[in-house]
């Protein structure tokens, strides 16, 4: 295990530029996180633990002021890394940034518990660790597409071209049916019937999945 870890370590030279993430962070970190997420890979977790635990402990001593609290922070942070690794998304940032977020959140909540005897955990609400659910990149959750715009567009694109043009004109370009008829050079009755057909077809397609 030591070998696996050490090969990922960057050279210990002081001239490594702090803001160049690529040169400092072992590229294995995100693979390890992935292996934990996908395969519950204990070896990969052990490697992550060996990289991060001493640093988290150091951070904890600085933030929380005692060795015991620092160890608790290691336990808390690494437990969350183990349990929530699937929330990390390699496309959205470095593994170190994600683990930092998990650690800072745990530390914030611990500090509130110590100082204010407050058991309410707020860290993950204030600083979301769910990169998968953030913004548009979430294919798995509906949250990033809660108006179903992307999904609707997929459906619309399966329509025959003539119907597509009408639907896109009315719903995406917000043209009136008259304007559209003029633009397409067809009678308004044709626009209306194409729209009716298109909507029926969309309804049918969506009904297969959203049957309520």
């Amino acid at each position: 295990m030591q070998q696996t870890v050490s090969k990922g370590y960057p050279k210990r030279e002081s001239n490594i530029i702090a803001n160049n993430i690529e040169t400092q962070v072992p590229p294995e970190l995100s693979h390890w996180l992935d292996s934990v997420a996908m395969q519950r890979d204990k070896q990969a977790f052990t490697a992550l633990f060996q990289f991060f635990a001493p640093k988290i402990r150091r951070f904890g001593i600085k933030q929380l002021g005692s060795e015991a609290q620092a160890n608790e922070l290691v336990q808390e942070t690494m437990t969350n890394v183990w349990r929530k690794a699937h929330l990390y998304n390699v496309d959205k940032g470095a593994a170190t940034t994600w683990v930092y977020t998990v650690m800072r959140n745990a530390s914030f909540d611990m500090l509130r518990r110590i100082k204010a005897k407050n058991e309410q955990n707020l860290g993950d609400d204030i600083w979301p660790i769910d990169m998968a659910q953030d913004e548009a990149q979430s294919e798995e959750s509906n949250f990033g597409d809660h108006l179903m715009e992307k999904q609707m567009l997929n459906y619309v694109n399966t329509l025959p071209p003539a119907q597509q043009a009408v639907v896109k004109g009315v719903y995406y370009q917000e043209l009136s049916q008259e304007q559209l008829a003029q633009q397409l050079g067809v009678p308004i009755g044709t626009v209306k019937s194409r729209l009716r057909l298109a909507l029926a077809k969309l309804k049918q397609q969506m009904g297969e999945q959203y049957n309520d």
């Binding site: 030279e13 002081s14 993430i21 600085k62 470095a94």
Partner: peptide
């Protein structure tokens, strides 16, 4: 956050902090 993470997990900055913590 990226900067803070680099600082917290920086390999090059280990020396001073570690020396303070003999138990480690």
């Amino acid at each position: 956050t990226e900067q803070a993470a680099m600082q917290a997990f920086d390999m090059t900055a280990d020396d001073d902090w570690l020396n303070d913590q003999v138990q480690l």
